[in-house]
């Protein structure tokens, strides 16, 4: 394991300190927690809290800022944060208009955020939750844990954040977040694994010529391992799977996110983007905006994901609204 770290057990607290020191005018840490919040909250606004395990940077702290999240809760690496921490975030951002929690659909996250909600409600704070489940690599079924939340979560942060900034009510913000969730789908793939610092060993193994389609952002199993192929084939496979699930009509408009999982050069993301774009054109879909970069990573995993969000006028204007989040400036 080769990492620029100190004690592997301290990576999250070291990182959070670094973040606060990098943006002291914008961010602050809630004492005794791994919660990063906007230094100055907008008044008269629904609070927005997200979070999850660390190792997905810039998610989630990078999305804290005017126009997106009010606070992000950083768990240990790949480990959902605990209810007390989430509660601290909720209390810190509530200005009396209630708080929306944006949760990625993993058992641990759902349980911890649930418990935090219960605790907050018992303290008289109005809390609502939305669960993001954009990963089409996993089947959605009532008998399973359902689809995972991956890069599409960032669109939910952006859109709900912009809506909240308009002064919308908790229910209105929740509604547009759920609408976003309904219309966003993603699919990823990996070329190489990542190593949880405290574990010290890669979380899985791939042969020198192998890739895994449908990988999860914690290295969970995907759909298929097979020999690595061209950027074009990879783009087509990921995009087609997303298209199939979203059931778009000719003429529909989409926002596109090409996300690097951590160690993929930006050059490769743009090469991929070219083919995703072509396939969308071939399907007579029009592209509203394209976002290329690292948005939801998996430590130093090599790989990428493709996210499509079907947009309408409301979602378009919310995507375009100003954001001062350090990792998502609009």
């Amino acid at each position: 394991m080769k990492k620029i770290i100190n004690n592997p057990n301290d990576v999250v607290s070291d990182m959070v300190s670094g973040m606060i020191q990098a943006f002291p005018e914008k961010l602050e840490q809630i004492d005794g927690t791994m919660v990063i919040k906007r230094k100055e909250l907008s008044s008269n606004k629904v609070g927005l809290v997200s979070g999850g395990g660390s190792g997905h940077e810039p998610a989630h702290a990078g999305y804290v800022g005017k126009g997106m999240l009010d606070a992000a809760v950083a768990g240990e690496v790949f480990t959902s944060p605990t209810p007390d921490q989430i509660l601290a975030a909720i209390k810190a951002v509530d200005t009396g208009h209630g708080v929306l929690l944006i949760v990625k659909n993993y058992t641990g996250d759902v349980m911890n955020f649930d418990m935090a909600s219960e605790l907050a409600e018992s303290e008289g704070i109005k809390v609502e939750q939305v669960i993001v489940n954009d990963d089409v690599a996993v089947e959605d079924s009532d008998f399973t844990t359902g689809r995972r939340g991956i890069a599409g979560t960032v669109f939910v942060h952006k859109i709900a954040g912009a809506m909240a900034e308009t002064g919308a009510t908790l229910n209105e913000v929740k509604e547009v977040a759920e609408k976003t969730i309904t219309h966003v789908r993603s699919m990823g793939m990996a070329l190489t694994p990542c190593t949880v610092p405290a574990a010290g060993k890669p979380s899985f193994q791939l042969e020198d010529n192998e890739m895994e389609i449908g990988i999860g952002i914690h290295g969970e199993a995907g759909i298929e391992r097979k020999p690595i192929t061209s950027a074009k084939n990879i783009a087509n496979e990921l995009t087609q799977k997303v298209l199939d699930d979203l059931q778009l009509q000719s003429g529909d408009e989409v926002a596109v996110m090409i996300n690097g999982l951590g160690a993929t050069p930006e050059m490769e993301l743009f090469i991929l983007q070219q083919h995703v774009n072509q396939l969308l054109k071939d399907n007579n879909l029009s592209v509203f905006r394209t976002y290329v970069g690292e948005f939801m990573t998996s430590l130093e995993m090599t790989g990428c994901s493709v996210t499509l969000l079907k947009v309408d006028n409301q979602l378009k204007s919310l995507l375009e609204a100003k954001s001062e989040a350090t990792a998502f400036r609009v």
Binding site: E76, F78, T82, P83, N112
Partner: peptide
């Protein structure tokens, strides 16, 4: 355990 384990195991 609730506040120090995290993940799925913590709440359980």
């Amino acid at each position: 355990l609730m506040s120090k384990v995290g993940g799925a195991a913590g709440p359980l």
